[in-house]
């Protein structure tokens, strides 16, 4: 790994100032992506700014109509949080299929979002939950909806000097729920071959509102708007679900790589979308 200078600010403002003044600086959270990228020469850094000691980034707090998760919270911390258990059990199920126990103790939510790898897990579900991210820099603070944050594989709209501080997830209406389906080659420690996050606000089996977001089938999460629109105000019968899944499949723009062919990924989207919807509505049995 090439040498760099290491900084460990104790305050957010200090970190912001360093980011504003040091050229070629990189933020370090858990390092589970950054270290591999530095070692492989995928990214370079003259300065590495550690977020370890910045207290603001490590908390999970309940607000009136949202939950704010500090960007520095590890996936393991999220899994252990009573607030998350209460309001967003769907995030726990993402944790269950995320990386490995060791990685989960280092990997942060902010890092997962900022890495913006096409097959990352949390951006998919957070987009479905209509989360917003807060970006801080010496110049000020702004917030960006999750759905607009990633621009492409490993690219986001974050400016170089900005620090992601928190992820704000609006509380769901009482009858709403979300679900994440991830397909991977083996039962643990694997990135998604394809994934689907679904958010539904239900009135019995009738859909008040829906969002379907697809992962690992495009450079960044795909908001399958037409598929979701099809569900709106409908009774979610198996046939309606199938039609929506078909639209989701059409919205996917996958590539072929060592993990799967584009064709297979499309097929997975069709199946995973139906699985998520059926499970949420409570249908069992085979698809098709």
């Amino acid at each position: 790994m090439a040498e760099f200078t290491y900084h460990r600010p104790a305050r957010l403002t200090e970190a912001g100032d360093l980011m504003a003044t040091l050229p070629g600086a990189r933020l370090l959270a858990g390092g589970t992506d950054l270290l591999n990228d530095l070692d492989a020469g995928l990214v370079s850094a003259q300065h590495v700014i550690s977020l370890r000691d910045i207290p603001e980034l490590g908390s999970i707090t309940e607000r009136a109509d949202s939950i704010a998760v500090g960007a520095g919270c590890t996936i393991a911390a999220i899994e252990a949080s009573p607030v998350i258990h209460k309001y967003f059990p769907e995030l726990l199920s993402v944790g269950l299929v995320f990386a490995t126990p060791q990685v989960k103790h280092r990997a942060t939510l902010g890092g997962n979002i900022c890495s913006a790898v096409a097959c990352g897990d949390f951006p998919v579900i957070l987009t479905a939950l209509q989360a917003e991210v807060t970006l801080y820099s010496a110049e000020g603070t702004r917030s960006v909806p999750m759905r607009e944050f990633p621009l492409a594989n490993r690219k986001t709209c974050r400016r170089d000097s900005e620090i992601l501080t928190e992820i704000i997830i609006p509380k769901k209406p009482p009858a709403a729920l979300a679900r994440y389906e991830k397909f991977r080659r083996r039962a643990a420690g694997s990135l998604a071959v394809a994934s689907v996050a679904v958010y539904l606000d239900l009135d019995g089996t009738r859909c008040r509102q829906a969002r379907i977001v697809l992962g690992a089938v495009a450079p960044s999460p795909v908001n399958a708007v037409e598929a979701a629109a099809l569900l709106q105000q409908k009774d979610l019968t198996p046939e309606v679900i199938r039609q929506a899944a078909d639209l989701a499949r059409k919205a996917a723009r996958p590539i072929t790589d060592v993990r799967a062919t584009a064709e297979y990924r499309r097929e997975l989207i069709f199946v995973l979308t139906q699985r998520a919807l059926r499970a949420m509505v409570g249908y069992h049995g085979e698809i098709r």
């Binding site: 290491y6 370090l28 390092g31 370890r52 060791q102 103790h105 280092r106």
Partner: peptide, 13 residues
Amino acid sequence: GSPVNSCIFLAVE
């Protein structure tokens, strides 16, 4: 007390 991969963890951290 928590397991971590020491290969992708900076000693300074």
